[in-house]
Amino acid sequence: MITRDDVLLVAHWARMELSEEEVEVLTADLNGMLQLAAELHSIDTEGVPPTMYGVNQHNVFRDDQVADSLPQEMALANAPDPKDGYFRVPKIMD
């Protein structure tokens, strides 16, 4: 059973502030979905390899060739707080 505190902790890991209402709704939802997920445990998967990719291939490469980068102003065009060619962020606490 997922509790309110569990939801708050997971929301912290995901760096998402939740409103009181959201915490309530999501606690119920998460429990519902985990109940659904629990049904999988009745399926025998002994020795079954996991499907991790949408496609079954390997060794896809590019050559080590330099391609054009974005011009600096394009790189920063969507920046919420650009400064002197950098992306500015508030104080880093840790």
Binding site: E17, K91, I92, M93
Partner: peptide, 15 residues
Amino acid sequence: TAPDVQTMYKHTRGE
């Protein structure tokens, strides 16, 4: 509305 970057993440994603 965030004084530091970690709070900024939470508020940004929360809002």
